[in-house]
Design a protein around this nucleic acid. Structure first.
Lengths: 196, 196
DNA sequence: GTCTATATGGGGATAGAC
DNA sequence: GTCTATCCCCATATAGAC
């Protein structure tokens, strides 16, 4: 198999396992087994665990950028775009109740390990933060767009954390509804952008 | 030294290290060194890592109960009591920006490890949840007291998670102010409970 | 590019002397 | 109750054959 292809498989497996089990708790052997490689061959592709982590963060950056672009193409109205972000809590509720938010839990784990890549991981949040801020600007809230973006990110993180602890799907749905109501309150014209 | 005394020292050290570095990343050697014990002696007090975790959770349960009782004694008005809860985000901001919320990060880590003690850890959240719900009931919101309690817990978790990723103290202060405004909006009479 | 075999270190855990 | 010495396993990481 071509080296690049195998590498992609490794990074995809590591991405999933780092999310489900955590970075530290995932061993080379776990990833190798998941891909169907021997541990020896594994080192041909990645020499250290840090290298894999960097690759995983890079992969998530790419995937996130693609996701945000898709949301932007799918909807014209900023409020509708923001709703797409909120809805991932519903769409991914099962995985969130089991393993939390992929971004938040990685950032927290790396912070505790005082890992060199913690700023790189935080860039994943920055992608959402800046994208959301642009949408709030589009809603006519340019002055506090970044604060509104952080507020929404904060809520999604809080929901994910408690959902993991209590495994309560109704709680997620209730808070998502509350976030949607909050969003409407930020810009009453949001639901009817073309009332002409 | 008396066995109980040494045991307390071990649990206190483990409590701190589990918070700062995480449960998995903390080794017996780390704890033993922190207390000033040999690894061999360590096993006289705790036979497995799970036993230490249980003891740490037990310690946190006790400390949390004592904290909530103090808050209840210090303030008569439910709204004022709830403010005490919100203010721990400010009081502990440095540690939170470094290591997140002790309860939330432990629950998340145990969930990823699929650890047997994950429900015990979630009981720490339940202490806050039930206490907050009682305060909201006292505010005349008995019907949705639990939902309001979870909402406030959710916010504090979200603030802690983002504060760790972005290390932004201003963000914490802004969100705490927003939580206080939200609290007032839940019961306009909250600030003046005795206007007679 | 993939494998087996192996080195090296750290982690949890035990035995037994003091 | 505390110590040293030790065992075993698993994890990262390497060497070298195919």
């Amino acid at each position: 198999m071509a080296a690049g292809e195998t590498r992609s498989l490794i990074v995809a497996a590591a991405d999933r396992l780092f999310y489900e089990r955590g970075y530290e708790a995932t061993s080379f052997a776990d990833i190798a087994e998941d891909v169907g490689l021997s541990r020896g061959n594994f080192y041909y592709h990645f020499r250290t665990k840090d290298e894999i982590l960097e690759a995983v963060i890079g992969r998530r950056m790419e995937n996130t950028r693609a996701l945000l672009e898709r949301w932007e193409q799918d909807s014209e109205a900023p409020a509708e775009r923001i709703l797409r972000f909120v809805d991932i809590l519903i769409a991914n509720r099962s995985k969130i109740m089991e393993h939390g938010c992929p971004v938040g839990t990685l950032c927290t784990e790396l912070a505790k390990l005082d890992h060199a890549a913690q700023n790189d991981a935080a860039e994943l949040f920055t992608l959402f933060r800046d994208w959301l801020a642009r949408q709030f600007s589009g809603l006519g809230r340019a002055a506090d767009a970044d604060a509104l973006a952080l507020h929404l990110l904060m809520r999604s993180q809080g929901v994910a954390a408690l959902a993991t602890a209590f495994r309560d799907e109704n709680f997620i749905r209730r808070e998502v509804a509350d976030m949607e109501a909050w969003l409407l309150a930020q810009c009453p014209a949001a639901t009817a952008p073309r009332s002409n």
